[in-house]
Design a protein around this nucleic acid. Structure first.
Length: 274
DNA sequence: GCGGTATGCCTAA
DNA sequence: TAGGCCTACCGCG
């Protein structure tokens, strides 16, 4: 689940559910220290929730920031209050009057100062889901980088919020082989890429899952069938567009999915590909 | 019950 | 580049 769309959706939902309210904060697992944040009753006032790429920031009064990064395994569980007892693995529980949010398995869940929060966002590239996103630095990086475009799209300091699924799908929809050196992407294609990422991520926020196809989806969420039908190449053996074989290989320790017939290698990528 | 796997990312070498 | 870390689920025996 956790690419940028998941994080932005969580920010929206959690702010609606808990924003502007006193929230009981606890760490059933014990790995998040609530002492500095919470009062004697274990409560704190949540001002707002902000997403930046795959990072979530909960702003508490007076000046605390709880930073959450789901990593590969992290998940939220949203429950009606009073919620059932938490699992032993629940890192953080935010308990409001009506809704309780449980956080399980995050890579990061830390208490930060606003300065430390800014240090994190300063490292990130433009986030296509944010209203303040300016893609200029993304275009500039593409234009000068010799790295494979498939690696550049996953680099959170270049464009943030894109993960392995969106990477695979964006490149497929544009007919670009992931090994293509970024600088070979023409400027007009780079602009189309940004627009496509914006559109797909927004759709992901609304649908609460990644869908890059127009096809009817009949299965229930979380079934394999559904995921396969919701993508063109990611997680598939055959390409949804041409039924050809989907190639998989490892790039920078992540599995790349691509259809070499829909996404032919061109130029240098064909010459020095694997 | 065990091992493999996954939409991520950091650090050491 | 390899290894570590976080958790849940699934297929296999």
């Amino acid at each position: 689940m956790p690419e940028g769309h998941t994080i932005h959706r969580a920010a929206r939902d959690h702010e609606r559910d808990l924003g502007g309210r006193r929230v009981k904060v606890s760490s059933p697992q014990g790995r998040f220290d609530t002492e500095a944040l919470a009062d004697a009753d274990g409560c704190a006032s949540l001002r707002s929730v902000e997403a930046y790429g795959k990072h979530l920031f909960y702003r508490f009064e007076p000046d605390f920031v709880v930073h959450v990064h789901l990593g590969l395994f992290g998940r939220f569980h949203r429950r009606r209050s009073p919620a059932p007892p938490p699992r032993a693995t629940t890192r953080l529980r935010l308990e409001g009057d009506t809704i309780t949010i449980d956080l399980v398995g995050p890579t990061a869940c830390d208490l930060l100062t606003p300065e430390e929060m800014r240090a994190i966002t300063a490292r990130l590239g433009p986030d296509p889901l944010r209203a303040d996103a300016r893609p200029r630095s993304f275009y500039a990086h593409l234009a000068r980088s010799r790295s494979p475009v498939g690696a550049v799209l996953m680099d959170q300091s270049v464009i943030c919020g894109v993960g392995n699924v969106y990477r695979a799908e964006v490149l497929h929809l544009l007919g670009i082989h992931p090994d293509t050196p970024a600088k070979e992407i023409p400027p007009e294609t780079a602009r189309a890429m940004w627009r496509l990422v914006v559109g797909l991520l927004r759709r992901g926020v609304e649908e609460k899952r990644i869908v890059t196809t127009r096809g009817l989806v009949l299965a229930k969420p979380r079934e394999r069938v559904l995921r396969a039908e919701s993508t063109h190449v990611y997680g598939r053996r055959t390409c949804r567009s041409c039924q050809g074989e989907v190639a998989t290989y490892t790039l920078r320790a992540r599995t790349v999915y691509c259809c070499e017939s829909c996404q032919p290698r061109v130029g240098a990528a064909a010459a020095d590909g694997p």
